[in-house]
């Protein structure tokens, strides 16, 4: 390893970076703003998704059995349900148990007038994948022993739809934000390329390869991207620290459990990638003479 060469290269990158401090500041700022938006969006999306998955995983199919199905026959159904790969769990609630639970829930209401148990035997079924709730419910309903298989159809539909829309909108939004950040970096790099056109001309004159000429600019672009992302992560961390406790107090049913370190790494990678692509393109255009 030739440290002199490395030092020369890093020195070039650093002097140019600081020499064009004003422009770099603009680029870093824009990347930061973009990535704050991106990060906030990803944060909200992940929170909603966690929330949605949480709700969906609690969705139960209430399987009411016909009156003539006794406990023994009900047990046969249990093995059928447990045998299906989509089913996570199936717990049997005999009618006595059901009544006991109902009485516990309705403890303020006098249930002593009930002379017979009006409840059917039932199964509570949970599925592994929330997407399959509908199919599993339909499949269970076809069984001759089953009177009715019920689930919160509306809620499930809406949640699934929201998740899908968020996913698609997310990709579009991420693309848009990344493109706008890339354009700003590309412009900044183009300005720094322009500011250094004499150096580039001399490098080309003395026989530096295009790859060599390109390298410092790409390092510069990536540095701007990464610094922008770092600033954004700082802002987001601060915002999370300030805002989330208040939100959590108001929206008690939502859990704010976002993996911050993964998100940070992702944002840094986005910053670096945006800087890389932008500077590559804008220097390339200049070198193609």
């Amino acid at each position: 390893m030739d440290w002199g060469r490395l030092r020369f290269f890093l020195g070039e990158v650093l002097t140019n970076f600081t020499r064009n401090a004003g422009m770099q500041f603009t680029a870093i700022g824009t990347v930061a703003v973009t990535i704050v938006l991106l990060g906030a969006f990803l944060y909200v999306r992940e929170t909603i998704q966690t929330f949605g998955t949480g709700v969906l995983s609690q969705i139960e199919i209430a399987v009411y059995l016909k009156d003539d199905v006794d406990d023994a026959k009900a047990k046969e159904l249990a093995s059928k349900l447990a045998g299906d790969s989509r089913v996570a769990s199936a717990s049997y609630v005999p009618k006595r148990e059901g009544l006991k639970r109902m009485k516990a829930v309705l403890k303020d209401i006098d249930t002593s007038l009930l002379t017979t148990n009006p409840l059917p035997n039932m199964y509570k079924v949970r599925v592994k994948d929330p997407d399959s709730v509908q199919n599993v419910a339909a499949w269970i309903a076809k069984d001759p022993r089953v009177a009715k298989a019920d689930y919160a159809a509306d809620t499930v539909q809406k949640l699934l739809k929201t998740a899908a829309v968020l996913g698609r909108a997310g990709i579009a939004l991420i693309a848009l934000l990344s493109i706008s950040a890339a354009i700003v970096i590309a412009n900044t790099i183009r300005l720094t390329v322009f500011a250094r056109r004499r150096e580039i001309a001399i490098m080309q004159l003395v026989g530096a390869t295009n790859m060599y000429i390109r390298m410092p600019f790409i390092a510069e672009g990536m540095l701007a991207g990464v610094l922008g992302a770092a600033v954004a992560i700082g802002v987001l961390a601060l915002a999370e620290h300030q805002v989330v406790p208040k939100l959590a107090a108001t929206l008690a049913f939502v859990t704010f459990r976002v993996n911050e370190s993964t998100l940070s790494v992702e944002l840094l990678a986005v910053g670096a990638a945006v800087g890389l692509i932008a500077s590559w393109v804008s220097v390339g255009r200049y070198l193609r003479t």
């Binding site: 001399i202 004159l205 003395v206």
Partner: peptide
Amino acid sequence: VVFQDFKLLSHKTVWENVAFALQVTGTRTR
């Protein structure tokens, strides 16, 4: 190649200007 307007880099010393031609073509420091 030598030009009428010298084309030296104003922020580099004479030594650095001359060395620049070697450094950007990947010459070893030695």
